Structures are given as structure tokens and as C-alpha cells.
Simulated assay, not measured.
Amino acid sequence: MKLRPMTAADVATVLALNATAEGLVEPLGADRLDWLRLIAAHAVVVDLDGAPAGFVLTFTPGSAYDGLAFEAFTQTYADRFLYIERIVIAAEHRRQGIASTVYRAIERSARPFDRTVAAAPTDTPAYAFHTARGYEEVGKQRLPDGTTTALLSKDLAA
């Protein structure tokens, strides 16, 4: 497995991967993905034996990213966090440690920010994954669609 920068050639594959995780991540179109890729701290494809097996997008404070959870983390932590906006691993590659490996890499790169943060719906595998990795719930956020998501943070300063 290797992590490599996401390119324009990856857009169709990334959109297809994202569609497999709808309900856990927001829907994504080509124009939005192009914009996110340009402003992201990390826009990375998980390459497994030469084929994309997943992707991740992260954002730093001060970026033009416009998500509600990102805004809440900015109000709470100012410029001391790296936001994991989404990670998607292809269904056939889940539960093989790939997401954990990606998270270890993200957390290493986030040390200068003191913490990584993410949002996940409660009572989902995503929430359980984060809490098992040491993320703590620091708040809840009501979304425009009426659902509630948990705001999660992992302190990396120690």
C-alpha cells in the first residue's frame, strides 16, 4: 500500500468510491471534488497494488473549506487542528487495517497542529473506529437534514 497525491485522472474513481460510502460521507460531484482537491492539505489516493483502494481529504485552519464541522472546530481550536474531512476505503478492502495505516500517517503529519479532528455519525462503524483510535467526543452538531453528528478530537501534543 502507498499513499499518493490525488490527480485529475483519479476523479472518476474517487467519485465512485465516495458513492459506496454515502450515508457515512456527504455526496460528492466532480466540480466539488476538483475544488476540494485544490484547497486540501491532503488529497490522497490509497494505492493498493497499482489500483486505487480509497482516498482521504484533510484541511488545515485558514483554508477555504466550508463545512459545518470545520467551522465548529475553527471556533473551538482556532488554528490548532488538522481536520479529516473524509476517508473512504473500497468495501472489499475494509477491515484490513488500511484506514488505521492512513490515520497513523495523517496523525504524524498533524503533530504541529496538536490534534486531529473529525465528525462522524454516532452509532456507526466510523464513530467506533475513531473512539477506538483515541478520539474523544467534544460536541454534537445538528445538521441541516436533521441528523446529528459527533465532533471528535484526538490530542497529539502528548
Rank of each mutant, 00 (worst) to 15 (best):
K2L: 14
L3A: 10
R4L: 05
P5L: 02
A9T: 05
A9F: 02
D10N: 02
D10M: 01
V11E: 14
T13C: 12
L17R: 03
N18D: 04
N18C: 00
A19Q: 12
T20D: 14
G23S: 00
G23M: 05
V25C: 08
P27R: 08
L28M: 15
G29D: 15
A30N: 04
D31G: 00
R32T: 11
L36D: 14
L38Y: 11
I39V: 15
I39K: 14
A40T: 03
A40H: 02
A43I: 01
V44Q: 14
V45P: 01
D49Q: 13
G50I: 01
G50C: 02
P52A: 02
A53D: 09
A53H: 08
G54W: 06
F55P: 03
F55A: 02
V56N: 09
P61N: 07
P61R: 01
G62S: 09
S63M: 04
Y65A: 05
D66L: 11
D66M: 06
D66K: 09
G67E: 07
A72L: 03
T74P: 01
T74Y: 04
T74A: 13
Q75H: 14
A78I: 04
D79T: 11
R80S: 14
F81L: 02
L82P: 01
L82D: 01
I84K: 05
I84P: 03
I84N: 11
I84S: 04
E85F: 03
E85Q: 11
E85S: 09
A90Q: 06
H93F: 13
H93D: 15
R94V: 08
R95Q: 15
G97Q: 06
I98A: 08
A99Q: 06
T101P: 00
Y103W: 12
R104A: 10
R104L: 06
A105L: 13
I106K: 11
I106E: 11
I106H: 09
I106P: 11
S109P: 00
P112G: 08
P112M: 10
R115S: 14
R115Q: 15
R115G: 13
T116H: 03
V117Q: 01
A118K: 11
A119N: 14
A119F: 10
A120T: 11
P121V: 00
T122K: 14
T122P: 11
A128V: 05
F129H: 07
F129C: 06
F129R: 09
H130C: 12
H130Y: 12
R133K: 13
R133Y: 08
G134N: 03
G134R: 07
G134E: 03
Y135K: 09
E136R: 15
E136T: 11
V138A: 15
G139P: 07
K140D: 13
Q141T: 03
Q141N: 05
R142I: 12
P144T: 06
P144Y: 06
D145W: 04
D145V: 06
T147R: 15
T147W: 12
L151A: 07
L152F: 10
D155V: 07
D155F: 05
L156S: 09
A157W: 07
A157N: 09
